[in-house]
């Protein structure tokens, strides 16, 4: 059975607390769902929050249908899908800016490994190489290419949520899609608090991020993987080798300020890319000012340039650098 873990949604503050923190004329809408292959949870606080929630749910449902459950589908099936072309275009821009490593045309490889199915298997070396040759390098695709938006879909969904929310009178909102989240607006009594899961211990935290409105995404090998012959294969595939990524990082979290254009897909893209590249490239990533990084490696060291990050003392991790 696929290692299915839903996010720990602790945004369920008591109704009383929410009412006092939201404002008298406002209302709070809350919704949970299964979207993008994970447990999603959203809270919207503002005028007409119920309508906003309905609209948001609709947008996400449409997106989910587009990206399908295991994120692989043939482009031929939805040739004019706006989500695909939009998402691909942005991914290409990000690749140009930050580097290659994420490829949305890798659907056939994903299917070969069967990672999102209940029965993943290790393919033969030959099959892998053969499949790799079929995948175009540059995120381009034709009608017969199989697509996999797994690395960016949730971030993209967060962007669409942001776009919707800016057209409403929402005071604040939290949109959680498991490994990608949007923290929107301003809470009346302080900053947002986001927990980062400890990659080694289930239901325990690496630390807490205190932040203003932002897009936050996490990537790691602990969330979804399968085991074969005693070896653990993560669900993130390395495009160079065709095999699941082998990296010395256990978890990467990227925080992008909410005002950044396409911040959601950017955080999702970057968290995966940084994870793939390992500790060797961390200096480069920590130097960027337009986003913040929290990275944990397999030796119990945490690297972070995030000012709002509070490391949990009991996490088993300590600061490096």
């Amino acid at each position: 059975m696929a290692n299915f873990r839903f996010s720990r949604i602790t945004a369920a503050v008591s109704a009383l607390f929410m009412l006092t923190s939201c404002g008298k004329t406002d209302s709070i809408a809350e919704n949970s769902d299964f979207l993008f292959d994970t447990y999603s949870h959203m809270i919207i606080c503002g005028s007409n929050s119920e309508e906003t929630m309905k609209a948001l749910t609709q947008i996400h449902a449409d997106l989910d249908a587009s990206f399908k459950l295991c994120y692989t589908t043939e482009a031929i099936k939805l040739p004019n899908d706006e989500a695909y072309s939009d998402c691909t275009a942005i991914t290409n821009e990000l690749a140009d800016k930050y580097g290659t490593g994420i490829n949305i045309a890798c659907g056939e490889l994903t299917e070969l490994w069967g990672i999102s199915t209940t029965d993943p298997t290790v393919p033969t070396e030959r099959d892998i190489l053969e499949t790799l040759t079929k995948i175009p390098d540059d995120n381009s695709y034709t009608e017969t290419t199989m697509l996999d938006f797994g690395a960016v879909a949730k971030g993209y969904a967060c962007d669409k949520a942001y776009e919707l929310l800016t057209t409403t009178e929402t005071d604040y909102a939290t949109v959680s899609l498991g490994s990608s989240t949007l923290l929107y607006g301003e809470k009346p009594n302080g900053k947002f608090r986001a927990g980062v899961t400890n990659p080694d211990k289930e239901n325990s935290y690496l630390g807490i991020i205190e932040t203003d409105a932002a897009f936050i995404s996490t990537s790691g090998g602990y969330e979804r993987f399968f085991e074969a012959d005693g070896k653990r294969y993560s669900h993130i595939l390395d495009m160079e080798t065709g095999y699941p990524v082998e990296t010395d990082l256990t978890s990467v979290t990227v925080i992008v300020p909410a005002e950044t254009a396409d911040g959601g897909i950017m955080s999702d893209f970057l968290s995966t890319l940084i994870y793939i590249q390992g500790t060797a490239q961390l200096d480069k990533w920590l130097a960027y000012e337009e986003f913040e990084v929290i990275a944990a490696d397999e030796n119990g060291v945490v690297y972070s340039d995030c000012s709002g990050f509070i490391l949990d003392e009991n996490s088993g991790y300590s600061y490096g650098k």
Binding site: R5, A11, V13, R193, I208, T218
Partner: peptide
């Protein structure tokens, strides 16, 4: 119980 439910979201 709600010990840590002052968190808005948890990233997994």
């Amino acid at each position: 119980s709600k010990e840590q439910s002052d968190l808005d979201v948890v990233l997994k």
